[in-house]
């Protein structure tokens, strides 16, 4: 344990599943927001014609890119599920058992990403 310097910050509650759910929701949103311009630019290649887009699709046909795409699927589903969590809390009457739901939601996201990976690799 530290003896000098900084006041120790709270770390206990970060094991709370709902805190993690909120953090995953935010990080996935940030990652997706940063990825989107790249996605739009890639698709926008079609303005130059089919050949330009085809070159890109060929380039992306590598295992590394496929893993990255699976990662994106995970991020998207995780963000969707996290958002649903927020919407449910804010719209409906309170219900217990949220931690179980949050963990289940994370599992759904992981499974989706995994399924995508299996199908494309």
């Amino acid at each position: 344990m530290a003896t000098g310097g900084e006041i120790r910050r709270d770390t206990g509650y970060r094991r709370n599943a709902l805190w993690w759910a909120a953090l995953v929701h935010r990080i996935s949103g940030l990652a997706l927001a940063l990825f989107l311009p790249l996605h739009f630019l890639a698709l926008g290649l079609a303005i130059e014609g089919e050949a330009a887009l085809e070159t890109f699709i060929r380039w992306s046909d590598t295992p590394a890119v496929k893993v990255a795409e699976a990662g994106l699927v995970f991020l998207l589903v995780a963000h969707l599920v996290g958002g649903l969590r927020v919407m449910v809390i804010e719209t409906f009457a309170w219900r217990p058992g949220q931690k179980a739901l949050a963990t289940a939601g994370l599992a759904v996201a992981a499974i989706s990403g995994g399924l995508f990976l299996i199908r494309v690799i």
Binding site: Y13, N16, L18, W19, A22, V86, E90
Partner: peptide, 18 residues
Amino acid sequence: HSHQSCAEHCPKGLNPTR
């Protein structure tokens, strides 16, 4: 953002997130 750390820590068992 509904982190619910408040409800987790409240010594009186209150639920500010709710």
